[in-house]
């Protein structure tokens, strides 16, 4: 067995892969949440929709996104596989346990939290990613007044060659952008209170999963240092357990209330 295969088939090797994919997914969340902040613009979704086009067409980002899909699948299934093996390491369970005395419950429930997230990701991706790629989303036409910057939108019934078409009508001093309207899909989706509830619950799961997962990833990679542990704990709590999930959760709530 080569040194690599040996390493990655061991318990620590497996965990390293879970940690690496996990931290990669964490970094993705930062991009995802910052991009999605554009949902809060009062531009009828123009920024969001054109950003979506950029994210789905740029070759570099496309490549990264395939790595991302693989990472999600790997992280989820390897995680569940390890959880299964861990169960087998203790065939007879204790009659009484007092685990709260020695560990945080998030750390003990990563499998459950992760499974919630997996279900959520399936729903989330079929509603948006699949719809966007393979569904029949309507197009929207934005007209931006180049002098005032004012944007108006209207449904676009025709056909365009790609996902986006942009041109300037000099006579009318405006820029026209025709683009697939994912924003409308978002608005539609979050009128459903059940969906909003699912998203809020899922974001709670994200919060708990990352509160432990982010720190845990560093520990697995051996990055544990008295001087820097404080920073990692800070990031885990404030960025990954609070700011990111709260911001994400604010989106469905915003559209629901809007």
């Amino acid at each position: 067995m080569s040194s690599f295969t040996k390493m990655f088939s061991s318990s620590i090797g497996n965990k390293i892969l879970v940690a690496l994919t996990g931290l990669f997914l964490c970094s993705f969340l930062i991009i995802h949440v910052s991009g999605n902040l554009q949902l809060f613009y009062h531009d009828n979704g123009m920024a969001f929709n054109t950003y979506t086009v950029f994210m789905t067409t740029n070759p570099l980002i496309k490549t990264v996104s395939y790595i991302l899909y693989v990472s999600i699948l790997f992280h989820a299934f390897k995680g569940l596989h390890l959880a299964y093996k861990n169960k087998k390491a203790r065939p007879v369970s204790y009659a009484v346990t007092n685990a709260s005395a020695n560990s945080h419950w998030t750390s003990r429930n990563m499998g459950v939290l992760g499974t919630i997230l997996l279900v959520f990701i399936v729903v989330h991706m079929s509603d948006f990613w699949y719809e966007y790629k393979f569904g029949h989303l309507p197009f929207v036409k934005y007209e931006k007044n180049l002098t005032t910057g004012e944007i108006t939108s209207s449904p676009f019934q025709g056909q365009i060659s790609g996902k986006q078409e942009q041109y300037v009508v000099e006579a009318e001093n405006k820029e026209v952008t025709i683009v697939k309207d994912l924003y409308a899909e978002v608005q539609e989706e979050f009128k459903n209170p059940l969906m909003v509830a699912l998203y809020v619950i899922a974001m709670a799961a994200v919060s708990f999963h990352l509160f432990h997962g982010f720190k845990s990833g560093f520990q697995t990679l051996g990055l544990n240092h008295k001087k820097y542990n404080g920073i990692i704990r800070f990031l885990a709590l404030y960025v990954f357990a609070i700011i990111i999930p709260v911001t994400f959760a604010a989106m469905p709530v915003y559209f629901f209330l809007k």
Partner: peptide, 18 residues
Amino acid sequence: MVGQMDEEGFGNCTNTGA
């Protein structure tokens, strides 16, 4: 040592700190 540890059937560390 890690190889032997795996062979013995111990579980994987999930950094709970217990």
